[in-house]
Design a protein around this nucleic acid. Structure first.
Length: 369
DNA sequence: AGCGGTGGGTGGATACCACA
DNA sequence: TGTGGTATCCACCCACCGCT
């Protein structure tokens, strides 16, 4: 059995339920081992995926099992089963579960379980396709150790709860502090400013950095206007609007922000290695991009670094020049801070914070009633 | 060690089907 | 014809793996 950081917590929970038998219970139970495998990412930081769907499929069924007190009354075999709609809506009430679909309950949980335990004779989720009712396989909940029967239903719930707690804790804290700052900002704008400043430091999580960059730049550009039109007498005034083109993590090779109506492209990166954005620059003409780089180095240093990489990759001066011409602007942490200060001067701090809270909730599927 | 390719996992969208 | 339940398609992330 694999052991990782969260395994220790699983063992602790089992100990509180089964005392000395805890380790045997864990060894004997495929379901617990499955949870152990699936909780590997618990302590891997906010960047790794939650993968809550299969956890929640087990969770809602076991919860239903406990609600019927089947761990005590021994009558599960006569139970009519749980309704699909109830299970699904319960899943969606759980943290980060608001977008879950039928996948886990219908197929994927069983499929994945079988992948890990090909010889296990039990299928975890049972269903009757005539009545559309669902059950957890009770055989997987009852573990017998030296002739004594142990029911792991409550332990399973506790383990998944603990997993949810770990996975969401830092995020909850983040949203909470945003909301606190939001209330606080009229009384103590300095505090709010300090907080935002801390969010765009180089050691910040990439997704948070992208969200905060977006919020600042959006407000910053909103103050700028251009005049444009199809004919001279139809020229109109427009403020620059920055759009986010998708979720941070659903954007492989895509562009992070687009500016209307100028059509500027913005790309947020963690490092000065921008080669991947200009991969075939020697063959194709590339669209100019503004890079928001999570670095406190000066623009000169960053530019030199990028230029050095380009030289190393292409060698030919002409292509290097074209490469550098495709970088419309570089925005580092300092420039972001300057822009931010300007936004604050214009009394738009509130908007920035609101945008951060909104975008974070979207990014992490977090909804609070 | 760093890379590029690959395939499984995940979530969103939608097609399909049964039934009222 | 709307609703609930299920299956499938698709895009994208990411872990993994073999190559250099």
């Amino acid at each position: 059995m694999i052991e990782h950081d969260f395994t220790y917590q699983i063992q602790e929970i089992l100990q509180s339920h089964f005392g000395n038998n805890a380790s045997t219970v864990l060894k004997e139970s495929e379901l617990l081992e499955y949870l152990n495998i699936k909780t590997k990412s618990a302590t891997r930081g906010s960047k790794s995926r939650g993968s809550f769907a299969n956890h929640y499929a087990i969770y809602v069924l076991v919860e239903d099992y406990i609600k019927g007190e089947f761990d005590k009354n021994n009558d599960y075999e006569n139970y009519e089963g749980a309704r699909y709609s109830d299970l699904l809506s319960r899943q969606r009430e759980l943290p980060f579960g608001s977008k879950l679909q039928n996948h886990a309950l219908n197929h994927r949980m069983n499929q994945e379980f079988k992948k890990y335990f090909p010889t296990c004779e039990y299928i975890p989720i049972l269903r009757n396709s005539e009545t559309n009712r669902y059950w957890i396989n009770e055989n997987l909940l009852k573990i017998s150790v030296a002739g004594a029967a142990h029911n792991i239903a409550y332990a399973v719930i506790e383990i998944i709860d603990a997993y949810i707690d770990i996975k969401t804790d830092s995020f909850h804290q983040f949203i909470a502090s945003c909301e606190k700052i939001q209330q606080l900002q009229s009384e103590d704008p300095n505090k709010a400013q300090e907080f935002i400043t801390s969010l765009i430091q180089p050691n910040m999580d990439a997704r948070i950095f992208e969200i905060v960059s977006f919020a600042i730049l959006k407000e910053y550009y909103a103050d700028q206007v251009i005049y444009w039109g199809w004919t001279l007498d139809s020229i109109q005034k427009a403020s620059l609007i920055l759009h986010k083109t998708g979720r941070t993590n659903a954007n492989d090779g895509g562009i992070d922000f687009v500016m209307h109506p100028l059509g500027r492209f913005f790309q947020v990166t963690e490092t000065t290695d921008v080669r991947k954005h200009f991969l075939d620059i020697d063959k194709v003409q590339r669209f100019p991009v503004t890079f928001v780089i999570k670095s406190s180095e000066s623009i000169d240093v960053i530019t030199n670094k990028i230029s050095a990489q380009a030289k190393k990759s292409y060698g030919v001066a002409k292509i290097v020049r074209r490469y550098m011409e495709c970088i419309e602007e570089i925005i580092n942490v300092q420039i972001l801070l300057n822009h931010f200060n300007k936004v604050v001067e214009n009394n738009r701090l509130q908007n920035v914070i609101e945008e951060i809270v909104l975008q974070s909730k979207v990014e992490f599927n977090y909804y609070q009633e």
